[in-house]
Nucleic acid binder design. Structure first.
Lengths: 325, 325
DNA sequence: TGAGGTCATAACCATTGGCTTATAGTCCGC
DNA sequence: GCGGACTATAAGCCAATGGTTATGACCTCA
């Protein structure tokens, strides 16, 4: 499999025709045909079949078309970036968990880049399990998220303690109750956001089955649903201070809460981390950083950050899987 | 540039040594060295320099290491996917705007896959300008988002009308005012979420300068800040019904609002779109779909959807750019 | 049935890739 | 200044790539 072959196939998929692709690429038709043939042998898939006048992609061909276009695009980007890296400012590549992306990284980077004004930052959002490989492969310089699983060569320390509290809408039946046992909440609908949830751990620790949940695209969305009385939620305390003060959410006095948890910063080991990575690693533990994160959960003035554009990392999300219900 | 060369360089970057990389790859040291040499000539960058006992990556080398690991990973995924595509169920690849990801796609796909139970769905989040190229390159089958710029071969139609209203916290000074002119709100702090904002258009239509804004990682986050009295917001009406009913947000009676807007569905032209793409395209316009979207903005029962894992699409976000302020 | 598409394959050739072994250059520490 | 550890380069080999032209097989449509 070569870049040229993938480029050929991507063009075929795009044009819907081998000969048109050949014209577009400025080569003879057999050149494209043989590139496809090589991919066929390599991948063990027909990729497309002739049907009537034109062609139709097989299932494998559909996937290859997507991946080929992506890889070819990456190659272009790579060349451009390496070219532009000459004499450029520092680049800090961050990988964060969804929750950190929602509440932590924007104010944190806002504060950090105030001190390091000549710095570019690229941010990805990924699951915590991907942090170590991404650091080791140098696809990221710094990871911010929940406790990572230990990995050789990766050096993680907690940098921010936060508290988890159970919240619900103000009309919740247990709003005024004291010292609620967790099993009294087993029948509730628990609302969760995107990231990896402490909720499962909380129940597992007490040997209780994980309760029924409703999933939201964002933590803030889950909070909104909780406020509307749709269920209860294990929320990050400082992100619900406003709603609690206003009374749109109330804290339930559940035994075992507030529960402490930590966000971690991870980099490569001392010798291998880049200077910017080391600087951010030191910075996140400072009171200034903590202050910035806790003071304005989520928002920063415009003009310093564009919001990130997201791309899902897995391509085969099985939405048809159903729970017994 | 070949995959083997990139794999070699990625290993060098990872190991921090040419000879260790050679050992890891099971080849001789000159094999790796010459692969790097080929990349050097190809890309016109030193990639790394010898320093003391080991090596240090140049700026270009850092970027290459990141991109190389990414490409190599993609190649592996590609082979796996094509292999597994044999006899597999249909795959629907969706690309959506950030706002659609937050409020539309989860309930929509929940309803859609109820009818099409044997379907896999992959979702990416990207900016509207990327929709057309992604459809044309067959990196996505269906795009859902705000009005796309017209492109040859891409067929877009509006599928859902929604209303935009100006909301603020309940103690806002204009909470009870009637028929507010937009220029009376120019001094406000406007809160915006991630996506492309109607806000700029709204002001531009009246030839007013775009006001000062605060940016949030999610629409729901911006809503929370508005409820806390941090500013005003141009919100999607059906997503703030709950807060309005509870009184945690109030609608400001601004002239020109409620303002109508549309979400669009885009696919390739009739002949080239896949059957699933055509089915979803038809489905989104049905009352059932509309109902699902409006009824539960944001959330779905767990077990049907895992929340997506996000990766930023741009690698050179310049966070140090500052607006004159 | 035959003409005109379209894609696949064959035969051929020049170039590149990727590996080996051998050797030369460079830097560090003693 | 010299051994030792490292990377870079040279020379040689074989396989694979990427291109050509020529030809065959298949489908559609007049």
């Amino acid at each position: 499999m070569t870049f040229a072959q993938l480029r050929s196939f991507a063009t075929v998929a795009r044009m819907g025709s081998v000969s048109e692709a050949a014209t577009a690429l400025g080569v003879s038709e057999p050149a494209v045909s043989s590139a496809v043939s090589a991919l066929r042998k390599d991948l063990g898939d027909e990729l497309f079949v002739r049907v009537g006048g034109g062609i139709r992609l097989t299932a494998g061909g559909e996937r290859l078309a997507a991946a080929a276009a992506e890889i070819v695009g990456l190659e272009d980007r790579l060349r451009r970036e390496v070219r532009e890296a000459r004499g450029e400012r520092g680049l800090l590549r961050l990988v964060v968990s969804p929750t950190v992306a929602e509440y932590v990284s924007a104010p944190l980077l806002d504060a950090f880049t105030r001190r390091q004004p000549t710095l570019e930052v690229a941010q990805e959002v990924a699951a915590g399990d991907d942090f170590a490989p991404m650091l080791l492969d140098r696809r990221a310089d710094v990871a911010l998220g929940p406790s990572p699983r230990p990995a050789a060569g990766v050096d993680a320390i907690p940098f921010l303690r936060f508290k988890l509290v159970v919240v619900a809408g103000p009309r919740h039946r247990l709003a005024a109750a004291r010292d609620i046992g967790l099993d009294a909440l087993r029948g509730e609908r628990w609302l969760v956001g995107p990231g990896e949830s402490e909720l499962a751990r909380l129940f597992a620790e007490r040997s209780l089955p994980v309760p029924e949940t409703g999933t939201f695209a964002t933590e803030a969305g889950a909070q909104g649903a909780a406020a509307a009385g749709e269920g209860v939620m294990l929320a990050i305390a400082h992100t619900v201070l406003g709603p609690l003060r206003r009374g749109s959410l109330v804290r339930l006095d559940v035994r075992g809460t507030p529960r402490d948890a930590f966000w971690y910063v991870a980099t490569l080991g001392r010798e291998r981390r880049s200077p910017v990575a080391a600087a951010l690693r030191r910075f996140v533990a400072t009171p200034e950083a903590t202050q910035a994160i806790v003071a304005r959960p989520g928002g920063v003035p415009a003009g310093r950050f564009r919001p990130p554009v997201y791309v899902t990392i897995w391509s085969a999300l099985d939405v048809s899987a159903r729970q017994a219900s």
